[in-house]
Design a protein around this nucleic acid. Structure first.
Lengths: 241, 241
DNA sequence: TAGTGGTCTAGACCACATA
DNA sequence: ATGTGGTCTAGACCACTAC
């Protein structure tokens, strides 16, 4: 398949972000500048930026320019909600990473990731905290080993925003995710970790994440206290209203 | 504000669907035909169709044409899930409408809809069934009265797909919605309706819906049995992967 | 006034589907 | 071979922002 011109523009911007030339809040070069630099027409640049705006990596401000957004795939649409308020706030959760190792995929995980039983995967278990006390969420994720080889090394610091690391370190850019949310009941182990009574409701989120040019790369299960999370999303294009 | 040309194209297609000239599965006129008919350039037609494809009203098939999709805003991303399976199926739920009336908005509803306390709203209460037995969900919705005046008349049949009626009858086209989902516990009244034990987990969905040219028009609260629903969504643009 | 993104045009050429 | 959507070009003009 021939590479599309607007994809080279997308790749260029991804690269600028990955290598640190561009970071959150930065103004990217104007459309006409990119057009000259990359030798493509301005319409092609616009198409590329349209796509990146859709994925929320960039946002435009008429008359000023186009900025790198702070949109955070890691938080997904699954947000901490402060007590009593129904509005999904975007309080950032601090995460620890108690477990990380390379393992062989069992039948469930290989099925979810579309690989063969026993293939290498890198397993990461994280816990999310609002404050110093007990965690409010447990996050288990399995990565196809090839794409993030080395992530299991304990000398590699994992920041709160895992995908930012994945982008910089492994040149793997998560551009979309599919999430399925259900409600459930905490089992004994999870209730101990989350410091809630066994039988308390929890929200369970299954996520499949896809990277540019690589397809499905991660499967993740997040379990959160039902009293502390809500899930917010938008359907359709609000700009059309 | 001056009307944009591509909006006239969007309006044209909405109208064709609303008046029945186009319906689910139909091939819409080709881009060049629309371009001639509406006296706009083909690029403008493409931009309009891009937008409608984003809202999932249309989908394109290279070499064949552009079709009206069966995408259903009513079902939202909140889908019935069959027992034991974690995959969100798209089984259609049959709905009854036991309550519909024009009322004055209380403080909560007026706040949610951005209107004044005591303004007219049309209240619709519906229940969703998988089979003939007990309902699996309760749906309460409040509409700004002006936009759907007459919806409260009991001689007006409300189909399972409420938005299809709203589109045809009131020329109001829902193009986007914001949804917030939380888990909760069934109160006494709801547990009786849903035929579950009080204290059982339920999923609670708050939805704000927006229509072309009218902004926010509906606020809705849906309560469903946690054992029978999941919520599925996609973040970003899957085509980029 | 200069620079940005937003809209719109009028083509060319390519890739896919159908007959 | 014909018609469809998909990519790409090379402009024009408008609307918003900053100085």
């Amino acid at each position: 398949m021939k590479k599309k011109l607007y994809e080279t523009v997308i790749d260029f911007i991804h690269e600028q972000i990955a290598n640190g030339s561009l970071t959150i809040g930065d103004l990217i070069p104007s459309e006409s500048q990119l057009s000259k630099k990359l030798n493509v027409s301005i319409g092609t640049v616009r198409k590329a930026i349209d796509k990146l705006e859709n994925t929320k990596l960039l946002y435009r401000h008429h008359g000023k320019g186009t900025y790198v957004s702070d949109y955070n795939f890691d938080n997904s649409m699954f947000n901490f909600v402060s007590y009593g308020s129904g509005t999904g706030s975007s309080i950032r959760i601090h995460k620890t990473t108690p477990v990380r190792k390379k393992i062989k995929a069992n039948s469930e995980i290989s099925h979810e990731l579309g690989i063969k039983n026993g293939d290498d995967v890198i397993y990461i278990e994280r816990r999310g905290y609002i404050d110093k006390k007990s965690p409010v969420m447990i996050e288990k994720s399995w990565w196809i080993a090839d794409t993030v080889e080395g992530l299991q090394q304990t000398n590699l610091h994992i920041p709160d925003l895992l995908y930012a690391l994945i982008s910089k370190q492994f040149n793997t850019h998560i551009t979309s995710s599919k999430e399925v949310l259900t409600a459930g009941i905490a089992n004994k182990k999870n209730s101990e970790i989350l410091n809630i009574k066994p039988g308390s409701p929890v929200v369970i989120l299954h996520r499949h994440s896809y990277a540019t040019g690589k397809g499905l790369v991660e499967f993740r299960i997040t379990t959160g206290r039902a009293d502390m999370f809500s899930y917010t999303t938008t359907i359709g294009n609000p700009d059309d209203s």
